[in-house]
Amino acid sequence: MTDTLSFDQFTPDHLDGALHLSREAGWPHRREDWQFVLRLSRGVVALSGGKVVGTALATPFGAVAMANMIIVDRAMRGRGLGRSLMQRAMALVEAPEWRLVATADGLPLYEKLGFVACGRVLQHQGPVAAQAAPDGVEWAVQADLPALVALDRQATGADRADLIAELMAEGRLAVIREGGALAGFVALRRFGRGEVAGPVIAAGPDEAQRLLGFVFAQREGAFLRVDTTEAAGLAPWLAAQGLAAAGGGIAMRRGTPAAPETSPLQCFALAAQALG
């Protein structure tokens, strides 16, 4: 590390520098995508001569926190900067359980920090094939927000009320209603090269496919991304809808897992790899 290296709180003033780093790394994020995560998070930047050379964010979700947006300038790698950024960002949030999605390159660092692999995240993206909208799915309304937050908490064990509110403000959510109650939902918002569909909260794969099918029917030909999990079993179906496999990551956890609520609901697709 150089003598000019310093650390500072990640603020909106650092977004342009962070965007430069992510573009160099080949990430699809727009400035707005960084801003979306930053609004929900606390973080740290590393500065060298006033230039942003590293970032790390920590997003609190009640008993769960996500470590994310961890990136170091190529010229600064191999000096322990990633570890220092991670530790500083995680010190800003108290949570018994930490989660993240790792790249293969980042895996050794996260393992050294006590994270353990717990599954695979599969990225699918591409132009959506034409299809008919399934029955029983409709767009959510603002009054659905408390029920959406409750469904998400049951499926993830995290309190993501702020995230769900942001998703409603930034995009649209579609829901399955059964007997007047909500039984699942999917969010759709702008991201990267096009749009991202997620999270998908549902009781089973059939319901998850109905929710995604509803969104796909509205966006024929549009470039969409879905980050699912290997355990969810949706990958072959997503590929059949025109969303080809495009890499992914390793889901990791550290600490005491949040006690799951008794519920059949599962998370079949992520809001983002940064946010779970």
Rank of each mutant, 00 (worst) to 15 (best):
A150W: 01
A150H: 06
L151V: 09
D152K: 06
R153E: 12
Q154T: 08
A155N: 04
T156P: 08
T156D: 06
G157Y: 07
A158W: 00
A158R: 01
D159S: 10
D159G: 01
D159Y: 14
R160V: 05
A161Q: 12
A161C: 04
D162S: 12
L163Y: 06
I164Q: 08
I164P: 05
I164V: 13
A165P: 03
L167C: 08
L167Y: 03
L167H: 09
M168D: 00
A169V: 13
A169E: 14
A169Q: 13
E170C: 11
G171R: 06
R172D: 14
R172Q: 15
L173I: 08
A174V: 08
V175D: 03
I176S: 10
R177Y: 05
R177H: 09
E178F: 00
E178D: 13
G179D: 10
G179M: 06
G179W: 01
G179P: 04
G180I: 11
A181N: 15
A181Q: 15
A181F: 10
A181H: 14
A181P: 02
V186L: 11
A187T: 07
R190S: 12
R190N: 10
R190K: 14
F191C: 04
G192H: 11
R193D: 12
R193I: 04
R193P: 11
G194Y: 09
E195G: 15
V196S: 08
V196T: 15
A197R: 12
A197I: 05
G198E: 01
P199A: 07
P199S: 05
V200Q: 07
V200W: 10
A202P: 02
P205E: 08
P205F: 00
P205Y: 00
D206F: 11
D206N: 14
E207L: 06
A208E: 05
A208Q: 02
Q209R: 15
Q209V: 05
Q209N: 06
R210V: 03
R210Y: 06
L211M: 04
L211F: 11
L212A: 09
G213A: 10
F214W: 15
F216K: 06
F216G: 11
F216R: 11
Q218E: 14
E220Q: 15
A222T: 10
A222I: 00
A222Y: 03
F223T: 06
L224V: 15
V226H: 02
E230H: 13
A232Y: 00
A232E: 05
G233R: 02
G233T: 05
L234D: 06
L234E: 00
A235I: 01
A235P: 13
A235V: 05
P236S: 04
L238P: 08
L238K: 02
L238F: 12
A240L: 13
Q241M: 15
A244M: 10
A245D: 06
A245G: 11
A245M: 06
G248I: 03
G248T: 03
G249W: 02
G249K: 08
I250F: 04
I250N: 08
A251S: 07
M252L: 07
